[in-house]
Each structure stands twice: as structure tokens, then as C-alpha cells.
């Protein structure tokens, strides 16, 4: 690397005897590495850069949304109309869509994920369990746009032709399952999110379940509990803070997820009771409208939506990490 830094070293004589200048540079470099502070300073600079980037991120979100915050105030969060043309901008339809789809996602993903985690941690032979967990980890690595692709071309037609009509027939007395069926809509958004967050619930829950000491399981079995009773009555409660953590983590993922939901939610910023109706989420409106936004207020309002999303996910992530940490630190004993 020394030669690279000095390509024009003046008097190159032979490899065995580097020129004085070259040698002194190498020596200097060696001396530099021989100090304690070089590694310290370099790595500290990088660490400080992370601080700077994150600060810049928060600062940008805050200042760039100033216009919108000044104009709409707190009313932005509860405004029900989104009409960029007249600059009536309220975030409620997007917040509604985000929350509803995330709730649907959790309602499906939590039982499914927890069930699968229990199977992998408690019942499957260790070898099979780690292979299945490997497959499920890969599921978490599938890019979101691919879920969207499958959502548009596979799931939405299936919902339109099979699932939605069936729901309407059986549960149609509920306002949730009334109205015209499009295929795209809140239900489709929630479903695709559910499939996307399941791997997170499984892999975190499986790990906290595996960390439960064996004597808890045996304690219950020794009292004549069946395998399921020991799992559900002793092992799962022991790991419950960690499991809550995995759910919060999944929720944070669901809230911030963009591409898949943009592709199937229908993108109509209205609040409707029916889950069949198209809706919109914060992330989806950003993906759809940011590039087309023209007026400063419009852009600023979109960035404020980004700020809202940022705050939501940060709070949830923080809670999730605290819970998971509490489980691992206290060996799982909840308060």
C-alpha cells in the first residue's frame, strides 16, 4: 500500500533494497500501526459518523416537515381529507390504513408464528428444527417487492374469487365484510404483511423458548402435566416477555413495510369500515406520491408523514428490545 500511495517514488533501485524515502515511509507506517491510538481514532471516527448520520436523519425529517407542521399543527394527525390539489392535507386515512393492516397482520401472524415456534423449539427433533428455522430465516430475507409481486398476481385474484366472497357469505352481517369486492384493499394488505412478519415472530420466539431452562419443563411434567400443558403452562409463560418482544418487533416491521403493501392496498385515502375496501398506508402514500409532489406544502406534509412513521416505529422497536433484553438478562423470569 505504500507504493500505491507514492507511485512516483523517484529512485527505484531494487526490490531487495528499497530506496530511503520508501523505506522511511514504510517505517513510519509501521510505527503508526505500532501505536495504540491509530485503531482507536479510526474506529471512533466511524462511530461518530453513525451518530452524525442518525442526527442528520432526525434533523432533516424535523426541519423539512416544518412547513406542514406550522400550517396544519396537531390537526394534521386527525384530518380526514387528503386533497393535495386544495392543500387540505390530513394524515388520518393513512394512519387508519397503517393501523388496520398491521392489526390484521398481527391477528394472523401471532398465533401462526407462536405455534410454529413452539413446534420448532419443543417438539421437532433438534436437527429438523434447525433446518426448518433456516428455511424460515430465508423467508425473512425475501425482498418485499417480491411479496408484492406475488400479492398482485397470486393473492389478490385468489382473494377476489374465493376468500372475499366466502367471508361475505358467512360473516357478511359484520360491517367489516360488506361492500363491493375488489381483491385489493385493507384485507389484502393485512394478509401480505402477515406472511412477511411471521418469520420474525418465529425466529425470535423460537430462540427465547429454547432459552427456557429445562427444569421448568420437567417441573411441570413431573406433576403429571401433558406435553402441551407443560409447554403452554410453564415454558411459554416463562418466555413471555421475549415473546411480547418478538410481537412488538413484528409490529414495527409491519408499520414500516412499504412495497408489498403499496402494491395490494388499493391506494385510496378514505376511511371505510369494510376490510374489502381499498385504503392507503403511510408508507404506501410516500411511495406513490413523493416523486409527483410539486408544491412545498405537499412535500412537507409527506415528510411529516415520514416523521410520524419514524416516531411510531422507533417507540415500538425500543419497547421490543427492552422486552427481549429483559428476558435474556433475567433468564426469562417476568416480574
Amino acid at each position: 500500500m505504500a507504493t500505491a500511495a507514492h507511485p512516483a517514488a523517484p529512485q527505484v533501485r531494487s526490490h531487495a533494497h528499497p530506496p530511503g524515502f520508501f523505506r522511511s515511509f514504510r517505517n513510519r507506517l509501521r510505527k503508526l500501526i505500532g501505536t495504540d491510538w491509530l485503531g482507536y481514532v479510526l474506529s471512533l471516527v466511524a462511530a461518530v459518523l453513525i451518530l452524525a448520520i442518525t442526527t442528520a436523519l432526525v434533523w432533516q425529517l424535523w426541519t423539512q416537515s416544518a412547513l406542514s407542521r406550522a400550517k396544519f399543527g396537531w390537526g394534521f394527525l386527525v384530518g380526514r381529507t387528503w386533497s393535495p390539489l386544495f392543500e387540505h392535507l390530513g394524515a388520518l386515512p393513512f394512519i387508519y390504513g397503517t393501523v388496520v393492516t398491521s392489526v390484521i397482520a398481527l391477528l394472523i401472524a401471532v398465533p401462526l408464528g407462536l405455534g410454529a415456534a413452539i413446534f420448532l423449539a419443543e417438539l421437532a427433533p433438534p436437527r429438523a428444527s434447525s433446518w426448518l428455522a433456516f428455511l424460515i430465516d430465508l423467508l425473512a430475507a425475501v425482498p418485499s417487492v417480491i411479496y408484492g409481486l406475488l400479492g398482485i398476481f397470486v393473492m389478490v385474484p385468489f382473494l377476489r374469487q374465493v376468500v372475499d366472497p366466502a367471508l361475505k357469505r358467512t360473516l357478511g352481517f359484520l360491517p367489516l365484510f360488506q361492500g363491493p369486492i375488489y381483491g385489493v384493499g385493507l384485507l389484502a394488505g393485512g394478509l401480505v404483511l402477515a406472511i412477511m412478519v411471521v418469520p420474525f415472530i418465529i425466529s425470535v420466539s423460537r430462540e427465547v423458548l429454547l432459552a427456557v431452562p429445562r427444569d421448568q419443563r420437567e417441573g411441570a411434567l413431573a406433576l403429571g402435566a401433558t406435553r402441551w400443558e407443560a409447554t403452554w403452562g410453564a415454558v411459554v409463560p416463562f418466555a413471555r416477555t421475549g415473546i411480547y418482544g418478538s410481537i412488538f418487533l413484528a409490529l414495527a416491521r409491519a408499520l414500516g413495510e412499504t412495497m408489498a403493501i403499496t402494491m395490494v392496498i388499493g391506494n385510496d385515502p378514505k376511511i371505510r369500515a369494510s376490510l374489502f375496501a381499498p385504503g392507503a398506508s403511510i408508507a404506501a402514500v410516500l411511495a406513490n406520491e413523493f416523486v409527483e409532489a410539486t408544491t412545498p406544502t405537499y412535500i412537507s406534509a409527506l415528510i411529516e408523514l415520514g416523521l410520524v412513521l419514524f416516531c411510531l416505529t422507533i417507540v415500538l422497536n425500543g419497547l421490543a428490545r427492552l422486552l427481549i433484553l429483559a428476558t435474556s438478562r433475567r433468564g426469562g423470569a417476568p416480574a
Binding site: 420437567e218 417441573g219 411441570a220 406433576l223 402435566a225 409463560p237 423470569a333
Partner: peptide
């Protein structure tokens, strides 16, 4: 019945621990 080397009460109240076997 069995009692283990290391005390292994469940993370529940004293009452619930003792009642566990009765409940199931």
C-alpha cells in the same frame, strides 16, 4: 412426584405454583 436439585418454581405466585398440579 418429583423434586429437583435446583429449586424450579414457575414464574407465578406462590399460590399458583402449588395449585398448578391441582388445576391441570
Amino acid at each position: 412426584g418429583m423434586v429437583f436439585q435446583k429449586p424450579n418454581p414457575f414464574p407465578k405466585s406462590i399460590f399458583e405454583n402449588v395449585a398448578y398440579g391441582l388445576r391441570i
